[in-house]
Protein backbone atom coordinates (compact mmCIF):
# COMPACT_ATOMS: atom_id res chain seq x y z
CA UNK A 1 0.00 0.00 0.00
CA UNK A 2 1.63 3.20 -1.10
CA UNK A 3 0.63 6.81 -1.27
CA UNK A 4 2.76 9.56 -2.72
CA UNK A 5 1.78 13.20 -2.12
CA UNK A 6 3.80 15.87 -3.87
CA UNK A 7 3.35 19.64 -4.13
CA UNK A 8 3.94 21.20 -7.54
CA UNK A 9 4.43 24.97 -7.14
CA UNK A 10 5.67 25.51 -10.68
CA UNK A 11 2.46 27.29 -11.61
CA UNK A 12 1.74 30.83 -12.84
CA UNK A 13 0.20 32.14 -9.63
CA UNK A 14 1.88 32.25 -6.19
CA UNK A 15 -1.38 31.55 -4.36
CA UNK A 16 -1.89 28.32 -6.30
CA UNK A 17 -0.43 24.86 -5.80
CA UNK A 18 -1.07 21.53 -7.47
CA UNK A 19 -1.01 18.64 -5.01
CA UNK A 20 -0.26 15.48 -6.95
CA UNK A 21 -1.53 12.31 -5.32
CA UNK A 22 -0.48 8.83 -6.41
CA UNK A 23 -1.58 5.45 -5.09
CA UNK A 24 -4.31 4.49 -2.63
CA UNK A 25 -6.02 7.10 -0.42
CA UNK A 26 -7.86 5.43 2.43
CA UNK A 27 -8.31 5.54 6.20
CA UNK A 28 -4.63 4.69 6.72
CA UNK A 29 -2.99 6.98 4.17
CA UNK A 30 -5.37 9.96 3.97
CA UNK A 31 -3.80 11.76 6.99
CA UNK A 32 -0.79 12.45 4.73
CA UNK A 33 -2.98 14.18 2.17
CA UNK A 34 -4.70 16.13 4.94
CA UNK A 35 -1.33 17.28 6.31
CA UNK A 36 -0.20 18.47 2.87
CA UNK A 37 -3.45 20.43 2.40
CA UNK A 38 -3.07 22.02 5.86
CA UNK A 39 0.59 22.90 5.16
CA UNK A 40 -0.25 24.59 1.86
CA UNK A 41 -3.06 26.61 3.44
CA UNK A 42 -0.76 27.59 6.33
CA UNK A 43 1.81 28.76 3.76
CA UNK A 44 -0.78 31.16 2.34
CA UNK A 45 -1.77 29.25 -0.78
CA UNK A 46 -5.53 29.43 -1.14
CA UNK A 47 -6.15 27.82 -4.51
CA UNK A 48 -5.37 24.17 -4.01
CA UNK A 49 -5.69 21.89 -7.01
CA UNK A 50 -5.55 18.22 -6.05
CA UNK A 51 -4.49 16.06 -8.98
CA UNK A 52 -6.11 12.62 -8.62
CA UNK A 53 -5.14 11.27 -12.03
CA UNK A 54 -2.62 8.81 -10.56
CA UNK A 55 -4.93 7.64 -7.76
CA UNK A 56 -5.80 3.95 -7.94
CA UNK A 57 -8.20 3.80 -5.01
CA UNK A 58 -10.06 6.38 -2.96
CA UNK A 59 -12.57 5.93 -0.13
CA UNK A 60 -14.89 8.02 2.04
CA UNK A 61 -12.03 9.01 4.35
CA UNK A 62 -10.29 10.62 1.39
CA UNK A 63 -13.52 12.34 0.40
CA UNK A 64 -13.74 13.68 3.97
CA UNK A 65 -10.22 15.10 3.75
CA UNK A 66 -11.00 16.81 0.43
CA UNK A 67 -14.27 18.25 1.77
CA UNK A 68 -12.46 19.53 4.89
CA UNK A 69 -9.80 21.13 2.69
CA UNK A 70 -12.46 22.73 0.51
CA UNK A 71 -14.18 24.26 3.54
CA UNK A 72 -10.92 25.65 4.93
CA UNK A 73 -9.83 27.02 1.54
CA UNK A 74 -13.19 28.76 1.06
CA UNK A 75 -12.98 30.25 4.57
CA UNK A 76 -9.79 31.93 3.34
CA UNK A 77 -11.45 33.18 0.17
CA UNK A 78 -9.93 30.41 -1.93
CA UNK A 79 -10.97 27.06 -3.30
CA UNK A 80 -9.96 23.43 -3.51
CA UNK A 81 -10.40 21.97 -6.98
CA UNK A 82 -9.67 18.59 -8.48
CA UNK A 83 -8.03 17.16 -11.56
CA UNK A 84 -9.43 13.76 -12.47
CA UNK A 85 -10.14 11.91 -15.68
CA UNK A 86 -10.31 8.44 -14.16
CA UNK A 87 -13.86 7.21 -14.74
CA UNK A 88 -13.76 4.90 -11.74
CA UNK A 89 -12.72 7.68 -9.32
CA UNK A 90 -15.12 10.19 -10.92
CA UNK A 91 -17.96 7.74 -10.34
CA UNK A 92 -17.33 7.89 -6.57
CA UNK A 93 -17.74 11.67 -6.68
CA UNK A 94 -20.87 11.31 -8.81
CA UNK A 95 -22.69 8.77 -6.63
CA UNK A 96 -21.96 10.73 -3.46
CA UNK A 97 -23.19 13.98 -5.04
CA UNK A 98 -19.79 15.62 -4.68
CA UNK A 99 -19.52 16.61 -8.34
CA UNK A 100 -21.91 19.41 -7.33
CA UNK A 101 -19.51 20.94 -4.83
CA UNK A 102 -16.10 20.38 -6.42
CA UNK A 103 -14.83 21.99 -9.59
CA UNK A 104 -13.31 19.03 -11.44
CA UNK A 105 -10.92 19.47 -14.38
CA UNK A 106 -9.77 16.70 -16.67
CA UNK A 107 -6.15 17.82 -16.91
CA UNK A 108 -3.52 20.11 -15.45
CA UNK A 109 -3.63 22.38 -18.50
CA UNK A 110 -7.40 22.72 -18.20
CA UNK A 111 -7.05 23.57 -14.50
CA UNK A 112 -4.41 26.23 -15.17
CA UNK A 113 -6.03 27.76 -18.26
CA UNK A 114 -6.84 31.45 -17.77
CA UNK A 115 -10.47 32.08 -16.97
CA UNK A 116 -12.42 33.23 -19.98
Amino acid sequence: MTLKVEADRDVPSSDTVIIRVEGEVDVYTSPRLKQEIMDELAAGRTRLIVDLNAVEYLDSTALGVLIGGLKRARERGGDLQLICDNVRILRIFEITGLTRIFQIYRSRSEALAPAT
Binding site: S60, G64, I67, I95, I101
Partner: peptide, 16 residues
Protein backbone atom coordinates in the same frame (compact mmCIF):
# COMPACT_ATOMS: atom_id res chain seq x y z
CA UNK B 1 -23.39 17.57 7.28
CA UNK B 2 -24.85 15.52 4.42
CA UNK B 3 -21.23 15.12 3.35
CA UNK B 4 -20.10 13.78 6.71
CA UNK B 5 -17.41 11.14 6.21
CA UNK B 6 -19.19 8.33 8.10
CA UNK B 7 -22.40 8.99 6.19
CA UNK B 8 -20.56 9.00 2.87
CA UNK B 9 -19.20 5.54 3.67
CA UNK B 10 -22.73 4.29 4.35
CA UNK B 11 -24.04 5.89 1.17
CA UNK B 12 -21.33 4.20 -0.87
CA UNK B 13 -22.03 0.76 0.62
CA UNK B 14 -25.77 1.05 -0.02
CA UNK B 15 -25.28 2.17 -3.61
CA UNK B 16 -22.54 -0.29 -4.51
Amino acid sequence: SPFDEAQLGGVLIRIL
